[in-house]
Design a binder for these strands. Structure first.
Lengths: 207, 207
DNA sequence: CGCCTAATCTTGTCGTTGGAAAGAGGCAGA
DNA sequence: TCTGCCTCTTTCCAACGACAAGATTAGGCG
């Protein structure tokens, strides 16, 4: 094999390269079109090379999902920080986190779908669970800040409510089940309308 | 081949048999574990027999999804009719439809996930679109009955809100992202709590 | 009643997949 | 330097979706 100039025998960064090519492939072909061999091909290695870094294709998908949750948490925090100067800081953060959540999902639809189906696809690693937990605790903290004096049960149910509304809206939207022929601007308005209705419900129920 | 007593050469009901075995297989193995050949095996025919009835594996999945939406609409209507005797009939129906939606999803998690990802999986048939439309119009009609005097825009946004809340809650629940170690009874209470908060928001926003 | 056309199903094949096994290449510590 | 381990390649296997060609039968037409 002619390899001397082009490719060293040892890749060196193969795990990272597979994560990168895998993520791109996932967005291009969707979950059902995702193949381990194509990931390897794009990373410039043989089809069996990934086996050392990922025990199975589900292992690689779990890694992609876990990193997705990390990014999602970061996107939520970043957007919440951005709207710091609102009149009601706590409510502003709650809505901001929702905007960040939706923006991440819209920007990475296939990855988001993968993240939303790990149970059904039987992928379950500690890193994945921890990353998903972080997102949940962000929701809980934002709700806590809005209704600090409410009971724990109310807070938990409002956190459910917030997570469900935001997740459900962007899921249905990406699925084409909401806003068929609306422009992007009108859809954003509907999303914000949902977020404000959601925030108002949290405030009213908690107080 | 010895076939005289056991299996006639022509199945006769193969399309229906494939839909039935396919649905069972989907719930057993999940979307990624779904194979056309296993469907054929369970229906007692050769691996190439399905080709005549379904052009591709995506065609069969689309059929399963379309029938799922039909069943979902029926479950929503049935549950809404069941709670007919509530104090506020319109609100009762709205909540009842939400309960029916969640019950169907909980009873058919893999099918529900398939239905919630048709865009990403590139399946798109007229029957599927029509069946999904029926579910959406049920949401819209229930909201309409609760706030008949609101503007069309408010009604549309409240329909979004209702669909998103219900869909998001049951999706996160089936995904294990809500109510990790709660009993089934406590989860149902949280679901109902979400539905009542949702209904109250619709009423307040519309009036 | 008998044929005969078209629909249905089987068998066989191709290219691709995920995974396992065996061996080659290269790095790092003794 | 040498040796052992980590990484990657090559080779192989069973299973997959899809296609092609042949077998079988139902049902209409004579």
């Amino acid at each position: 094999m002619e390899r001397s100039k082009t490719q060293p025998y040892h890749h060196g960064q193969l795990r990272e390269a597979l994560v990168t090519s895998g993520r791109a492939l996932l967005e291009e072909k969707g979950i059902r079109g995702f193949t381990l061999r194509e990931c390897a091909r794009r990373a410039g290695v043989s089809h069996a090379a990934p086996a050392y870094h990922f025990a199975s294709i589900d292992d690689l998908l779990a890694e992609l999902a876990a990193r997705g949750f990390d990014e999602l948490a970061a996107a939520m925090t970043a957007e919440a920080d951005r709207v710091k100067g609102a009149e009601d800081a706590a409510t502003g953060r709650l809505v901001g986190q929702g905007v960040g959540y939706m923006a991440f999902a819209a920007g990475n639809p296939a990855l988001f779908q993968l993240m939303s189906s790990r149970e059904a696809n039987r992928l379950d690693t500690p890193a994945l669970a921890a990353a998903a937990d972080k997102v949940r605790s962000l929701h809980a903290a934002a709700v806590e800040a809005v209704i600090p004096h409410a009971s724990g049960e109310i807070k938990q149910r409002m956190a459910d409510f917030v997570g469900a509304s935001v997740h459900g809206f962007i899921s249905l939207l990406l699925d084409g089940q909401i806003g068929g022929k609306d422009s992007s601007r009108a859809l954003k308005a509907r999303g914000l309308s949902l977020l404000s209705a959601m925030a108002e419900t949290v405030i009213r129920t908690g107080g």
